[in-house]
Design a protein around this nucleic acid. Structure first.
Lengths: 200, 200
DNA sequence: TGTACATCAGTGAACGCGCGTTCACTGATGTAC
DNA sequence: TGTACATCAGTGAACGCGCGTTCACTGATGTAC
C-alpha cells in the first residue's frame, strides 16, 4: 500500500484504539492482534508501527475507555441540570437494562474488564487506571449525605454507599450476562434495580 | 510407567478434577491441559485416557464445583441449627473476607467462573449448571419474608432479595480482586458488608 | 494357586494451528534544494 | 514551483512458542485357564 499521510496514520491509530476498546469489552483483552487489526481494516504487521507491544495497547485502551466513562457520567450529570439524584437514577436504569447486558462493547468497563484486570499482574498500569475508575464511579454513585429520608442501599451513606451500590450494579451485570439465555438473567437485573431504587 | 490399578486410575481422575476445580477458579478455564496435568502430577498425554476433550472437563468441573458449594451451604445451615439468619450472616462474613478475596482457588465459583461462563457459547452445559448454581445460592440468601423488621437489602424480600444480595456479594468480590493492591480493595469489602448486614 | 496373555493407564514425541512479534519490502508522502 | 530523494505507514511472509489433540509405545494389572 505504500506510505500514508500523517493525518491518515493518526486516524488509523485512533481507529485501532477505538476498535480495541470495543472488542476488549466484548470479548476480553485476549482478542488477538490479528483479529483486532482486521476489525480495524488493517493488517497485523502495521500494529507494531503504532504500538510497542500488545500489553502497551491494553494499558492505553484501559485508560481511554475509563476517560470515556468519566465523560459520560459528567454529561449525564449536566443533562439533569446538576441534579445528582436524577442523574444517578438515570444511570442505574441504563446500567441494569437488557440493552446494556447485550451490548458489552459499548458498556461499562468496570464490569467488562474486571476479570482481565484481576488476572493481569499486579504491577500493571491497567490496574491503577482501573482502581481510579472504580473510585470515580463510586463517587458519582454516592448517595446524598443525610438529606431527608433515603440515603441509599442499606442506609449506608457517602463514599461507602457509592461503593456498595457499585458492587450491586457490577454484580448484577456480570451475573445477568453469565446467565443469559435463562429467565434468571432478567430477574437478576430486576432484583438489583428494585434494591437500588426503592431505598435509594 | 505402565498400567496402573483401577483404583489408582480412579484416584488419578479425581485428582485431575479437583486440581482443575482449583486452577479454573484461580486462573480461569484457559489453564492449559499440560499445566493442569503437571499440577495433578501426571503428563498431558494421560488426559485423553480420562476425558473426551478439554470442553468436557470444563463442564464436569463446573458441575463438581457447584455441587461442592451447595454442600457447603447446606453444612453451614446445619452448623447454625437450621437458623437461616445466622447461617446467612456467617456466609456474608466469610464471603466478604480478605481470605476469600485472596483465595479464589477455594472460593465461590459464582464469582470466579462468571466471565468464563459468560464468554463461552450459549448452548454450553456449563452455562446451565452455572444458572442453577446462581438460583440455589440466591435461594439460600433470600431474606426471611416479612418477619419482624429487617427483610434484607433495600427492603426487597424473597427470591428477589436473595438475588439482589448475591449481586452485591459477587460484585464486591470481583471488584475487590480487580483492585487488589489499592486500599480501595478492602474498602469495597467493608462497604458491601455494611450494606448487607445493617438492613438485613 | 500358578502360568500365559490381553488390557489399558500413563508416557513422551509429534501434529496442525493461532498466538505475539519481526522483518524485508513497497511506494506514496514529506522535505531539501 | 518543480525535481530528487529520504522517510516511514502499511504489507505479508516468516519466527518461535504454547495450545489442544493424537499416537506408537511401555509394562504393571486383571483375567482366563
Amino acid at each position: 500500500m505504500g506510505r500514508v499521510s500523517q493525518a491518515q496514520a493518526e486516524e488509523n491509530r485512533r481507529r485501532v484504539v477505538d476498535t480495541a476498546s470495543r472488542l476488549f469489552r466484548e470479548q476480553g483483552t485476549h482478542v488477538s492482534v490479528a483479529d483486532l487489526m482486521k476489525a480495524a481494516g488493517l493488517t497485523h504487521g502495521a500494529f507494531y508501527k503504532q504500538f510497542a507491544s500488545k500489553e502497551t495497547l491494553v494499558d492505553e485502551v484501559t485508560a481511554h475507555v475509563f476517560d470515556e466513562i468519566a465523560r459520560r457520567n459528567a454529561a449525564g450529570l449536566e443533562r439533569h441540570d446538576g441534579q445528582r439524584d436524577a442523574a444517578q437514577r438515570a444511570l442505574i436504569d441504563a446500567y441494569l437494562s437488557v440493552e446494556h447486558r447485550d451490548n458489552a462493547a459499548d458498556g461499562c468497563p468496570v464490569s467488562a474488564l474486571a476479570i482481565d484486570v484481576a488476572r493481569g499482574p499486579e504491577g500493571r498500569e491497567a490496574r491503577r487506571t482501573y482502581a481510579e475508575g472504580v473510585a470515580d464511579f463510586a463517587a458519582f454513585l454516592a448517595p446524598a449525605e443525610g438529606v431527608g429520608g433515603g440515603e441509599g442501599i442499606g442506609g449506608v451513606g457517602g463514599v461507602e454507599g457509592g461503593l456498595a451500590r457499585l458492587c450491586t450494579l457490577v454484580g448484577a451485570l456480570v451475573l445477568s450476562r453469565a446467565t443469559q439465555g435463562s429467565p434468571l438473567s432478567e430477574e437478576i437485573l430486576a432484583a438489583a434495580h428494585a434494591a437500588l431504587t426503592e431505598a435509594g
